[in-house]
Design a protein around this nucleic acid. Structure first.
Lengths: 218, 218
DNA sequence: GAGATTATGCACCGTCGGGTGTATTAATAC
DNA sequence: GTATTAATACACCCGACGGTGCATAATCTC
């Protein structure tokens, strides 16, 4: 048993990829295992050899996407915090906020993220734990990271936010920056056509950051 | 033909009510006509006597809910604008904004609204026109109303918003006030348990209004 | 009350889709 | 090369569900 048979792993990967795309496009109830099998170029029997049921395929796919979401969250937090303790308080707070805003908006308004959100929101009634878990692992985690950033700038005297209002301020920052675009994107499934364009996203994000700055500058 | 037979109308109403509840709970794909018939206390055949298909029942239900959404939007716009040209500029702008914020947040975070949003977002891939129509008739309409309010206060010198930024400011106000609660609510289907409580909603809304005021006060 | 209209009950059709059994073939391990 | 393990093809079961037909019973109109 030196080498493990590569076939199961390969099939599993094919199935996961296809299932992800399939569920994102058709939703859970309306997606079919036969459809996934076809798109994966794999026999239906193979799917049932590797997974218990359609539901388990779905859970596996969603769990997988959680990992990528978390990876992003971590990178965002790291990038935002690094400059602060790294080279000292060199950059003006307004500029820091704008950059943070643009990065945040770009990440959340990514088409793949939007589609995942649509899927989970639509299936929230059937899979409450999945929707809840996503919320805690992604948006909530981002919010926590934002709080840390704000707290740091508050302690350095650049922002004037009462300590107990930091969580609220973090929420405000997040949605000031992309709330409207996000809300809109959820309702328009028309691929990338109706989704906000990159420059538009950046512009709104910066405008949001500026408003936040005016509201909370020291 | 003086009197029209009341039976069809009555059945229709029963069906609509039940279908609304049913679709909100189970979604479209996962909802069943038999289920609706049972909940409506009506035979399945009666449904198919009054509606072409399951899809048409769905469209009728959604269209109906559009009307109530519009009725609210109109009332919000009227209430916000009336005091301005009514008794003169008596009330301080900060207070006006807070009240507007609370009314807006309460309305959008109403459980029925949240459920409708979940339904349409989840079904956006299958019924793109419905989701788009909802967005334009409800959130978009509210946004337009908000713009008018802001423009008025801008012209009276109470708010300092460049004319071309009024639409962006309106979006910012809307999501500053309820963005985080709305986003969260979409992922938690657990009835009213996980939904934000009324005082919590009001507090966040007021905090949002205050931040907006600080950002845009003249 | 007569006659038209509507609602019901229920059997029924067709289809789709989740899930299984199995024999056959292909790939992998040693 | 042989034994094992996995993938395929395919036929199949079964339940759910959209939708229909029809005969019967309940309502309404006038």
């Amino acid at each position: 048993m030196q080498h493990t048979d590569p076939r199961p792993a390969r099939s599993r990967a094919l199935i996961m990829t296809a299932a992800m795309a399939h569920f994102l496009e058709h939703g859970y109830s309306n997606g079919s295992v036969d459809g996934i099998a076809a798109e994966a170029g794999v026999s239906k029997r193979t799917i049932y050899n590797l997974f218990e049921s359609k539901e388990e395929v779905f859970r596996a796919v969603v769990a997988e996407s959680f990992r990528t979401a978390e990876r992003f969250t971590a990178s965002l937090a790291a990038a935002s915090l690094a400059p602060a303790d790294g080279g000292g308080p060199g950059r003006p707070i307004a500029e820091v906020l704008e950059e943070l805003a643009v990065a945040h908006a770009r990440a959340v308004l990514d088409p793949r993220v939007i589609r995942l959100r649509r899927l989970l929101i639509g299936e929230a009634e059937r899979f409450p734990e999945l929707a809840a878990e996503y919320y805690e692992r992604a948006p909530q985690a981002v919010m926590t990271a934002l709080e840390q950033v704000l707290r740091r700038h508050r302690e350095s005297g650049e922002l004037n936010i009462p300590e107990e209002l930091v969580p609220i301020a973090a929420e405000q920052f997040a949605f000031l920056v992309l709330g409207a675009r996000l809300d809109r994107a959820l309702f328009f499934s028309a691929e990338d056509a109706e989704l906000p364009s990159a420059p538009e996203i950046a512009e709104r994000a910066r405008a949001g950051a500026r408003a936040f700055h005016r509201a909370y500058a020291a």
